[in-house]
């Protein structure tokens, strides 16, 4: 028996919208830790890791140990679009051996209650071990600013070079029409803490990434006012959006390397 009640149902809607362009189908894992997912895009260039901690749910019951639920994200997205932004979402499943999951949407006033049953799928997914890494640079900046930069640069080029030095974080691209460089300096003298750009650098780092993936990651912008970009040479970049009081969504992107 699995029963998860999420008062802020819009969080789940936003999470799925941020994943569905990159992930076709995935196993959602339910354990005492929380509701989680790890999935790669079909090219195995990006990896997505989601955690919604159990204590962030109003009610969290998961009796069957680790219980994977395979879902096609396009179908899940269709169903979650039927939930109102203010709705409370309850996820119910009977446990291993049952091939459906039920989503119940309650309006805040309890006047409208809807349930949608969706078929589960068997998904043969590979789970990767993500080692704890020491990052050469960790940058926290407004998520809307990061989204804007990725969008702007993708009208010029296909790849972005992200460099962190003591001057700041620099995003550079080049294409047929020319080049672009955007530098964001550390800025902690802001009225609101979420508007700050904070750079923690152990050593300078510079890596090249496909902009198409970065742009997909920014679909998670509605989840958080800030984004954290963690870089190490010879490691995938980690782009993390914290999910208020509940957990995170992390996007790992393998760098482009010199031939």
């Amino acid at each position: 028996m699995l029963e998860l009640r999420l008062v802020q149902g819009s969080l789940l809607k936003k999470v799925i919208e941020s994943l569905k362009d990159l992930v076709n189908d995935a196993n959602f894992d339910c354990s005492s830790t929380g509701f989680s997912l790890q999935a790669m895009d079909s090219s195995h260039v990006a990896l997505m890791s989601l955690l919604l901690r159990s204590d962030g749910f109003e009610h969290y019951r998961c009796d069957h140990g680790n219980f994977p639920m395979g879902m096609k994200l396009e179908n899940l997205s269709k169903i979650l679009k039927c939930a109102g932004n203010d709705d409370i979402i309850t996820i119910k499943a009977d446990g291993p051996g049952n091939d459906t999951v039920t989503f119940m949407f309650e309006s805040p006033s309890q006047e409208k209650i809807a349930d949608y049953e969706m078929k589960l799928m068997d998904i043969d997914s590979e789970h990767l071990g993500i080692p704890e890494a020491e990052f050469h640079a960790i940058v926290r900046m407004p998520s809307s600013e990061f989204a804007r930069i990725c969008k702007d640069l993708s009208s010029i080029g296909d790849t972005v070079v992200i460099s962190v030095t003591k001057e700041g974080i620099k995003f550079s691209t080049k294409g047929d029409i020319g080049t672009a460089n955007v530098v964001c300096r550390q800025n902690t003298t802001v009225d609101k803490p979420e508007d700050a750009t904070i750079i923690e650098m152990q050593q300078p780092v510079s890596l090249t990434f496909a902009l198409r993936y970065m742009n997909s990651f920014t679909k998670a912008t509605p989840l958080s006012n800030t984004v954290t970009i963690s870089l190490s040479s010879d490691l995938p970049v980690v782009v993390e959006y914290k999910i208020a009081e509940m957990g995170y969504i992390r996007f790992y992107l393998a760098p482009k390397i010199e031939e």
Partner: peptide, 14 residues
């Protein structure tokens, strides 16, 4: 010339 690496080049299967 830049080549795209893959996640499996860095993380291994559990």
């Amino acid at each position: 010339k830049c080549l795209q690496s893959r996640i499996m080049d860095y993380f291994s299967r559990e």
